[in-house]
Design a binder for these strands. Structure first.
Lengths: 219, 219
DNA sequence: AAAGAAATTTAGACAAGGCTAAAATAATTT
DNA sequence: AAATTATTTTAGCCTTGTCTAAATTTCTTT
């Protein structure tokens, strides 16, 4: 059995690997909210256990074994997020923090029951793909909203779950995964991006728009 | 926030207090599966935090604050047990071990949602009363099956959840809380107790019968 | 290319929560 | 009542996962 700490590190490494490519000590330190020195010592332990590889002063990489575990945890996390929303009506801006705790205590049996209850879902409430039991995961091709040209019809693919505040705002304007909307304009001087959905226009800050992934709608 | 360990100790103390009256170091050691020395040191910590009182070489007692916490954990445990059975179809002999983990990660918000989903239930799948949020709990008056005279019609009130094996057997013969049955006979030489339910007779060992609580059925 | 800045690692400490072995106290037997 | 046995506590150690401060190494700037 792996400690919760180890699971958290592996998950964080996976996530940074996906978004940044390189996984540095400081990035991990930042993400996990622990000191760089603590990261170094845990990295040493994870290397010894062959869950990651590590070259001093250069980053860290998951081994296949480590990646498998990371994906199991992420699977737990995302299944639980969706379950809490569907079965218990937990609002989408709260499911993440609950799932952070639940992901570590979910038995295989319960994982299967939840998966079945939900009808073997493919994405969580934020549009993130749910890894399969075998450790594979379908990644959808998409762009950050901030990079889309004005006058484009797009479909929301995925929204980052890291900021509840943002999720509440987006929920308020009806912006969810699978929603279609038009990028109306990008205001100059790093101003907001204006999108139109359900007939209304809404401003979305550039920073927030980095965390909203979309694809061109076929039209 | 309290550590999982502290929560486990408080719950164990509550349970031993209920069933044995006196809570000794060795009883705790046994129940929690840790050495007596470990219990002593944790007891010291819990005393300092005013969650229990302790006189050297005599037992331990919960303070009102400690009891409140113990009951909160037990409330979590029992709500989760029932929830897993009702919402996800987990068999009653498995809900206990799942709940042992979940009881520590349940937020107040989720507790309320589960409580509501279940229609504010009063007992868990084993018939144990679910403490209310305010820290009160209704205790039903009952006797161990082993102490009942033959030829009595009884109603099952509660079955201990500590042994999955026993629960599977009882489930197999249809013996659940609220079930009515007749105590047919007590075989001599510490032999089994014979009960009749749904027209069939079934033997129940004396030891098992200590863990089945019943009340006289009104008839 | 050297200096300064930033990132990483090492060294050493600490808190939690466990353990074993030995000492102290209480309970039981003779 | 003394001796033996059982229970509880103390003393000291270990592991996990964290921290700070100091030493390295790498990167950036001049």
């Amino acid at each position: 059995m792996l400690s919760q700490s180890i699971e958290d590190y592996l998950k964080a490494i996976y996530e940074i690997e996906s978004s940044e490519g390189k996984v540095s000590t400081s990035a991990l330190s930042e993400k996990l909210g622990v000191s760089p020195a603590s990261v170094t010592s845990m990295v040493k332990k994870l290397s010894e256990r062959k869950l990651i590889t590590h070259k001093r002063y250069q980053g860290v990489k998951l081994t296949p074994a480590g990646r498998k575990i990371a994906l199991e945890i992420i699977r737990h996390h995302r299944l639980v997020e969706l379950y809490l929303k569907e079965a218990l009506g937990v609002p989408w801006d709260q499911v993440h923090q609950e799932a952070e705790k639940w992901e570590h205590v979910l038995s295989e049996d319960l994982e299967d029951r939840i998966d079945k209850f939900l009808g073997y879902p493919v994405t969580d409430p934020h549009g993130s793909p749910i890894p399969r039991r075998d450790g594979t995961m379908i990644v959808r091709q998409c762009n950050a909203l901030v990079d889309v040209e004005p006058d484009t019809l797009v479909k929301v693919v995925e929204v980052s779950d890291h900021d509840p505040e943002l999720l509440r705002y987006l929920g308020g304007i009806g912006l969810y995964p699978e929603t279609e909307m038009t990028v109306v304009s990008k205001q100059p001087f790093k101003g907001p991006i204006i999108v139109e959905l359900t007939g209304k226009e809404h401003p979305i800050g550039r920073n927030a728009a980095k965390y909203i992934m979309v694809e061109k709608a076929r039209n």
